[in-house]
C-alpha cells in the first residue's frame, strides 16, 4: 500500500485539482481521504454519492447546571480560556472551552460536568474513482487534528487492502497538517511561483522533515512569474528536494472546476502535464514500495 498526501503550505495553489487528477489517472484500487476538514472540496470534482454519515465528537465541554450554581464566579476566574461568561447566569461558551476540566474539578457546588459535544461530521461517499472519506468541522472547533486522524482511520477501514491511499491535505503547518503527514510514505507539495508560496513552502518542508516521508514538489502555474519560479528551484536544489514537474497556467483548469470534473478529462496543457506527473510519481513510489518489500523485516 502506498500512502500519498498532496499538501501545499499556502492555500489555493491547486492542491485539490492535483489530487483529483492523480486519483483520476490511477488504475489500481484506491481510497481517497479529504483531510482539509475546514473546507473539504475534493468531492466537488467527482460524481459522489454519500453512503454514510456519522457525528464527530471532539473535546468535551463544560456544562453548568444553573439550578446548582450559586454564582460564586470561581469558574470564570479560573478558566484560562475565557470560556465562562456571566450574563445573568454563568454559562460556558463552547467555542472557547477547551475541555480541560478545571471548572468541573474546582466548583464548590459540584454544579459543573463535562460532556462530549458534537464538533463535526464524518462522511463516506462513493465516487467513480473509489471510496472517498471526508468531513465537515463545525465552525470554531479546536480539534481539527483529531478529525483529520478520524478521516484517515476511516479511509483505512473502508478498503481493507487498497493499493493506494490518496490524501488531499489541509493548508497551513499546524495541527491538521501534522496529523495529515504523520504515517504517510510520501508527500507531494503543490506550490506556485509567488513569494508567499515560497515562504510557506519552506515552513511546510521543515514540518514534513520531522515525519520522514519522501518529499516531492510540483510548481503549479510556473509560467506566471519566472524569477520567483527560479527561486523555488534554487531552494529545492539547496534542500535536495526533487521538483517533479511544472504545470503551466491553464484557464481550462477553472472550467474543469466549474464543471465539477478532474482536469485530466479535458484535452488541455495542464491535463497532459499531469499524465506525465502521474506516471513519474507512480513509478517512483511503486519502485520504493518494492524496495521496502525486499528489505528483511526489522
Amino acid at each position: 500500500m502506498i500512502k500519498l498526501a498532496v499538501i501545499s503550505g499556502k492555500g489555493g495553489t491547486g492542491k485539490t485539482m492535483v489530487t483529483a487528477a492523480l486519483a483520476d489517472l490511477n488504475q489500481r484500487s484506491q481510497v481517497l481521504a479529504d483531510c482539509d476538514v475546514d473546507a473539504a472540496n475534493l468531492q466537488l470534482l467527482f460524481q459522489s454519492q454519500m453512503i454514510s454519515r456519522e457525528p464527530f465528537h471532539g473535546l468535551e465541554s463544560a456544562i453548568i447546571d444553573a439550578s446548582q450554581c450559586r454564582a460564586c464566579g470561581l469558574c470564570q476566574e479560573l478558566c484560562r480560556f475565557g470560556a465562562i461568561h456571566n450574563g445573568g447566569v454563568y454559562q460556558v461558551d463552547r467555542m472557547h472551552c477547551e475541555g480541560c476540566g478545571v471548572c468541573e474539578n474546582q466548583c464548590p457546588e459540584g454544579a459543573i460536568t463535562m460532556a462530549k459535544v458534537q464538533n463535526g461530521e464524518l462522511f463516506v461517499s462513493e465516487t467513480e474513482k473509489g471510496t472517498l472519506v471526508h468531513a465537515r468541522l463545525f465552525p470554531g472547533s479546536g480539534t481539527s487534528g483529531l478529525l483529520v486522524h478520524k478521516v484517515k482511520q476511516k479511509a483505512e477501514e473502508m478498503t481493507p487492502h487498497p493499493s493506494w491511499i490518496l490524501v488531499d491535505g489541509p493548508p497551513g503547518t499546524g495541527c491538521p497538517l501534522i496529523s495529515t503527514v504523520s504515517g504517510m510514505d510520501a508527500v507531494l507539495i503543490v506550490t506556485e511561483p509567488s513569494v508567499s508560496a515560497l515562504h510557506d513552502l519552506r515552513r511546510v518542508v521543515t514540518v514534513c522533515r520531522r515525519f520522514g516521508p519522501r518529499i516531492m514538489v510540483l510548481i503549479n502555474r510556473y509560467d506566471l512569474e519566472a524569477d520567483v519560479c527560479q527561486q523555488i528551484h534554487d531552494y529545492c536544489d539547496n534542500q535536495g528536494l526533487r521538483v517533479i514537474a511544472q504545470l503551466p497556467f491553464d484557464p481550462q483548469v477553472i472550467e474543469a472546476v466549474r464543471k465539477g470534473m478532474p482536469i485530466t478529462r479535458f484535452d488541455s496543457p495542464a491535463g497532459k502535464a499531469l499524465l506525465h506527473i502521474w506516471e513519474d510519481i507512480n513509478s517512483e513510489l511503486v519502485a520504493n514500495e518494492r524496495g521496502r518489500g525486499e528489505k528483511p523485516l526489522p
Binding site: 492555500g11 475546514d38 473546507a39 465552525p139 470554531g140 479546536g142 481539527s144 493548508p171
Partner: peptide, 10 residues
C-alpha cells in the same frame, strides 16, 4: 485571518 473556520479564525 488564517484560512478555514477553526479556532484560529474565531
Amino acid at each position: 485571518s488564517s484560512p478555514g473556520i477553526a479556532c484560529p479564525v474565531i
